[in-house]
Design a protein around this nucleic acid. Structure first.
Lengths: 168, 168
DNA sequence: GGAAACTGTTTTACGGGTGTAATACCTGCT
DNA sequence: AGCAGGTATTACACCCGTAAAACAGTTTCC
């Protein structure tokens, strides 16, 4: 069993102050570091398609819900601010990947949907992205992955309850 | 066992396209989401002290290595760009938290160290931060935490080898 | 020995993306 | 009509990373 970065950081802290309860750091540090590495890896194939990860998330949210969404719903769905969604929608619309439709009853609200081109892009990109992710994770066998996934799910449920179901 | 966000997203994808191999998404999605929630939670107490998480990471890196570091070393240690470190150092120096010393042999390089005030701030903040993290994680018992931590360590070692030991 | 080319470190310039806060607009209710 | 509440956009400021610049050392080669 070799050391990871977090273990060596923890060891440094212990050397400086042995009374520190570094328990939480080990778990949280590893989650953060894994997330950073994975996101970095995932961004590469997306950039090749001219998309930001945030843009891809937005397109994916529309695609997977399979209906028109309002900008507000998209902000909640992608865990980002309304302003960010507004700007992303503008550039995606200029690129012809999404389309807007005004609501008949309430003229404040828009409905966003994918254009034919946008849908094709997502449907081409997602399987490729998933295949790539599979290779990135290939160091773990099937059993380890599902076990890890299940335990993270447990933590995630706790956090969502404790912290508040997501940024609003 | 209740559902988390990732499970419902996966279900949506399956409904739209049942042939998708969503395995990787479950694990990566959960890691990312946990990281996002945890970071959001951790930022709150830091902002109360007038610090960014990135600034705190920088101060912590100097504190835990217990010696003077150059800006370049700090960039590697905190996984951020040299330019970002330069700017953070400038504001931290203006606040009187860090101090610089030019190298005698090589006048290109600086050595950064904490001021008395900077050291006191870190030493006050870190235990508070760790205690807060412990409460955030309190939904999991000790055993679950260490098990999860160990499995993530295994993944992290794989990723560091595969992706390249960090941004360089 | 000394100039030139090369390497390495830090800083500056610039562009892009994000969030908070302020604004504009709309609806539904009293 | 006027007000309360909600939705989208705009304005502003911040932080970051890439790329270029500024600067200091080191090596090479005559």
């Amino acid at each position: 069993m070799t050391d990871d970065i977090v273990a060596s950081v923890v060891r440094q802290w212990q050397a400086v102050n042995p009374e520190l309860d570094t328990g939480p750091m080990e778990l949280i540090g590893r989650i953060n570091r894994c997330a950073a590495l994975l996101q970095q890896a995932e961004d590469a194939p997306l950039r090749a398609a001219g998309l930001t990860r945030a843009e891809f998330d937005l397109l994916g949210a529309v695609r997977r819900t399979d209906r028109e969404l309002t900008p507000g719903e998209l902000a909640r769905e992608t865990f980002s601010s309304g302003a960010a969604v507004t700007k992303r929608l503008r550039v995606l619309q200029e690129r012809g990947l999404v389309d807007r439709r005004g609501d008949d009853r309430d003229r404040r609200v828009n409905h966003i949907r994918l254009t034919e081109q946008g849908r094709e892009l997502v449907d081409m990109l997602l399987p490729r992205q998933l295949a790539y992710e599979r290779t990135v994770l290939s160091g773990l066998d099937e059993q380890s992955r599902t076990r890890l996934s299940a335990q993270l799910s447990e933590l995630l449920v706790q956090l969502e309850g404790r912290i508040g179901g997501g940024p609003r």
